[in-house]
Structures are given as structure tokens and as C-alpha cells.
């Protein structure tokens, strides 16, 4: 197995890594880069705990080979806050009680971010659809939906 040398944008910075060809993106993030905010929940695309943004689109990092991100742009939960300033979605999740065990939270927030970047004023069905690949066993989703909506309402206010 020949190792692969890859270069990509990770949370706004250029990143070079030597990865195994049979390594998933999830494993590279967690094991090689110690970015453990991206979670393993199932490894088969069924739960969304491993969600990252690849070229700004939310995807399951357990279904991508690390080598495939060569030349691409990647955002993980660790890249969302701007210094000590949390992303509005993070603040909203905290304030609205959208977090319980927190294991789904990084993936949820990233899916929600991708939605709001595309559609700043989504309806409830848009929000529920956008997070429908992210399972949460704790919250029943309601407070997550409310948290996303609150950020959307805020952007509306700003416009």
C-alpha cells in the first residue's frame, strides 16, 4: 500500500498529510489530526455524526477516503468559531437547549450551516430536511429546529 500525500484546505489553512490509501476521511481527522469533534457513530452513512463540509457541502466523512480530499476545501466543527467568537449557530444551539449528549451536535451544526449559507431564510420543512441525515436520539429534534430557525430569523433582522 503506497501512502498518499495530500494537500487541502482545512478550516481555512493549508494542510498536508501523508495518509494510508485505505483510510477514511473520518479516521484521518480523528486519528492523524486529532480533530475529534467529528464523530464515529455508525461508519455507514446512517447517522451523520461524522458530518463535515467538503467544498461547503455537508457529507458523511465515514464514506470518503482521506485521499479523495486532495485539492479540496474542508470544514470541521473545530473551524466554525472565529477565535473566541462562536458561530451564531453554536450560540443558538447553546441558548435554545438544542444540545443534550452533544454527540450529534457537531454534525447537526454543520448541516445547518450549509443550509443557512444556501438559504438564509428556510422554512421548517427546509430545516428538517437539511438535518434529516443527522440522527439525534436525545432531543426529538424540536429544539435543534428552533435553534436553526432563531439564527435564520436573526439574519432576516439584519437584512
Amino acid at each position: 500500500m503506497k501512502k498518499c500525500h495530500i494537500t487541502f484546505q482545512l478550516n481555512g489553512r493549508t494542510c498536508e498529510v501523508l495518509v494510508d490509501p485505505n483510510q477514511t476521511l473520518l479516521s484521518m481527522l480523528r486519528e492523524d489530526l486529532s480533530l475529534t469533534g467529528t464523530k464515529y457513530g455508525c461508519g455507514e452513512g446512517d447517522c451523520g455524526a461524522c458530518t463535515v463540509l467538503l467544498d461547503d457541502e455537508p457529507v458523511n466523512s465515514c464514506l470518503i477516503l482521506a485521499a479523495q480530499v486532495d485539492g479540496h476545501k474542508l470544514t470541521t466543527i473545530e473551524g466554525l468559531a472565529d477565535g473566541d467568537k462562536l458561530h451564531p449557530l453554536q450560540t443558538s444551539f447553546i441558548d435554545k437547549g438544542a444540545i443534550q449528549c452533544g454527540f450529534c451536535t457537531p454534525g447537526m451544526i454543520l448541516s445547518a450551516k450549509a443550509l443557512l449559507d444556501e438559504e438564509p431564510n428556510p422554512c421548517e420543512l427546509d430545516i428538517r430536511t437539511a438535518i434529516s441525515g443527522n440522527l439525534c436520539r436525545c432531543t426529538g429534534y424540536q429544539k435543534i429546529v428552533e435553534a436553526v430557525k432563531a439564527v435564520a430569523d436573526d439574519c432576516q433582522g439584519e437584512n
Binding site: 451523520g48 455537508p58 458523511n60 448541516s111 441525515g133 443527522n134
Partner: peptide
């Protein structure tokens, strides 16, 4: 198909 995450792939 699957979920939004899957559909992106």
C-alpha cells in the same frame, strides 16, 4: 435518495 449528506456524495 438516502439523506442530504448521502445525496451530496
Amino acid at each position: 435518495v438516502g439523506s442530504p449528506l448521502i445525496r451530496n456524495l
